[in-house]
Design a binder for these strands. Structure first.
Length: 558
RNA sequence: GCGCCCAUAGCUCAGUUGGAUAGAGCAACGGCCUUCUAAGCCGUAGGUCGUACGUUCGAGUCGUACUGGGCGCGCCA
């Protein structure tokens, strides 16, 4: 349990005690807010509960605070100091011994430190990336991959049973365009030719793909037919080829999936048709102009949407609905879709389709985590992106150029809601300007110290350590930061906000570097040395666990 | 025109679920290495939190309306 939760419980109990003694009339608040004050003079934690209750209690906030504090008398083993301050804050200062005691939590839990059981092992499915197999992954997919992957790691740490899924849109018009584009290249055409397919893909990778096809190369079990006229064979080979490219890029990015779901399987398994039949049976459709319409306006959309075009084909969101019905029927009561904000309009449609099924699916299901666009800066200038012409920064380019760790860290530093400027020059910079190195350096520094300690026969994990010697400001700050890790993971997972972890890491690295600059670890006083080593083992473990959630390495040397 | 997202230091962004005197990094300036890694530390400077009302003990945070930017609004995906 996090320190904050612990304090929340203590305050809850004191409120209940005061109520039973007739000192307060309010029912105990469901959510007692415990915060960490900006100013350390205001204690380690503060609560505003007295101000919250003042009105109902018809007492001055400070008077309410007095009553609450009166109930905390038997907690003197935890609290160093309890103050009433300002308009009615209760400021809580914990005893150093309490903080020092957190260290053994880290040591004993090791790689599991920071994990919680919040998710109670409930199933959650996270769908992310889900790029069409029509080209290489670009920088936007990279952001989605980093966010989705770290979200999974966060939910896993928070005690959820996570399934990672990738949805391949391997059916439909875009794939048809892909096949035509490859065929055109096989026939030696280029985009300037009048017979170049409309909306064809122009990127250079299409030429490579065409050459590979003509050379009768193999991708997995699929061997290219090398027949330019055989569009179906071209389609099969092109999809297999590009899927393999994407898979290899994702692997290089250390992103993996438990399940790959093919859109084409929805058709071959009859799920699209059966879903449409169920929606029709539910009475939320009508025919007009030869098309079948879904009354999405019944579910909050601003206009109705076509499900089946007059020429007979389904519009794109129909298989999406079928796919999500399938997710529901697979037992995923919780589903989170991570995707680019440019597709946000699908949310209303998919949810509307699911509601129209009358299948008992909750209104807000599934959840969505959207990330905004990424722009790329190089040499102080924005790199223009034209996907149609095939000129864009691929994920592979980024990984090759700036490295996996920096790429992931940069994508994860910012909250998904904000547009991201990816500065390639900064990400490549192997200096203190680069935040990822700043954090990794803290880990490497500790490693070096621990290595020296071992060389000198010092092992803080053997025998008793006098942790009470850790009384310097810099030491206590580190202790408190270490102790805050579990609640940081919990809140990042609960709010779907991976960027809190880089923020936490940066704070921790700052404290470590400050400590390092001011105090020597390996010194004359053996007990103090051992205590500091013990602290550093805990800090190192916490840094490593946090970096691991980001999928960023924790180097022993730099 | 409608919907979603964003607006905080010169630049890129945090801001602990509504708290006390708004922070970090970069860029600028000034200090610190014979001792565990200077990929570091310490300091200076930098602000009408887009604007205006509102909600309340209290608003960068919540609401409404504007302004500006991004994305989306198809019988495309």
């Amino acid at each position: 349990m996090s320190v904050r939760s612990k304090l929340r419980n203590i305050i809850q109990i004191s409120l209940e005690g005061a109520r039973q003694s007739g000192l307060l009339v309010s029912e105990a608040f469901q959510s007692v807010v415990i915060e960490i004050p900006a100013d350390p003079l205001h204690g380690d934690f503060a609560t505003n509960i007295a101000m919250q209750l003042a009105k109902v209690e018809r007492k001055a906030p400070r008077a309410v605070a007095e009553i609450i504090i009166g109930q905390l008398a038997d907690q003197s083993d935890i609290f160093e100091k309890i103050d009433i301050a300002g308009p009615g804050f209760i400021n809580l200062t914990l005893k150093p011994a309490f903080w020092q005691g957190r260290l053994s939590d880290v040591i004993s839990e090791g790689a599991n430190y920071g994990n919680s059981k919040t998710g109670a092992n409930h199933k959650v499915q996270v769908e992310f990336v889900s790029a069409n197999p029509t080209g290489p992954l670009h920088i936007g997919h990279g952001r989605g991959a980093a966010i989705g992957d770290t979200l999974c790691r966060l939910l896993d740490a928070a005690g959820w049973d996570v399934t990672r899924e990738f949805y391949y849109n391997d059916a439909g018009q875009q794939i048809a365009n892909l096949a035509l584009s490859v065929q055109a290249r096989c026939l030696g055409l280029d985009p300037t030719d009048t017979s170049w397919p409309q909306d064809g893909y122009q990127g250079g990778y299409i030429i490579e793909l065409a050459n590979s096809y003509l050379a009768a190369e193999s991708v997995g079990e699929i061997t290219a037919a090398a027949e330019p006229q055989n569009l179906e064979e071209i389609r099969k080979y092109a999809v297999a080829y590009l899927r393999q490219e994407q898979d290899s890029d994702l692997k290089a990015f250390d992103v993996g999936f438990d399940n790959y779901f093919l859109e084409s399987s929805l058709y071959s398994d009859g799920l699209v048709d059966s879903t449409v039949q169920r929606i029709i049976a539910s009475g939320h459709t009508y025919e007009e102009g030869g098309a079948l319409w879904l009354k999405t306006t019944d579910f909050g959309d601003d206009k109705d949407r076509v499900m089946r075009k007059s020429e007979g084909g389904y519009t794109y969101f129909v298989p999406d609905v079928a796919y999500h019905l399938n997710k529901w029927e697979r037992g995923f009561v919780r589903v989170i879709n991570e995707q680019g904000a440019d597709h946000h309009s699908t949310i209303t449609r998919v949810r509307a389709g699911l509601q129209a099924l009358d299948a008992g699916i909750p209104k807000g299901w599934p959840e969505y985590l959207l990330h905004q666009m990424v722009t790329v800066m190089r040499g102080g200038e924005e790199v223009k992106i034209s996907k149609r012409a095939g000129s864009y920064v691929t994920l592979r380019d980024l990984i090759d150029e700036v490295g996996r760790d920096a790429t992931r860290y940069f994508f994860l530093m910012r909250k998904p809601d904000s547009q991201l400027v990816f500065d390639i020059d900064l990400a490549k910079d192997q200096s203190s300007d680069n935040p990822v190195y700043y954090v990794q350096y803290a880990h490497a520094r500790i490693s070096r110290i621990l290595e020296s300690a071992t060389e000198n026969g010092l092992d803080p994990l053997l025998g008793a350590v006098h942790i009470a010697l850790l009384a310097e400001t810099e030491e206590l700050d580190l202790l408190k930061k270490v102790a805050a890790f579990p609640e940081t993971v919990e809140s990042a997972a609960a709010n779907l906000e991976p960027h809190r972890i880089p923020s936490y890491l940066h704070d921790m690295a700052t404290l470590l570097h400050s400590f390092y600059a001011k105090h020597r670890v390996l010194g004359e006083d053996k007990n103090l040395t051992l205590a500091r080593l013990y602290l550093l083992v805990a800090v190192k473990q916490t840094l490593k666990n946090a970096l691991s959630i980001l999928g960023v390495s924790a180097p022993e040397k730099m």
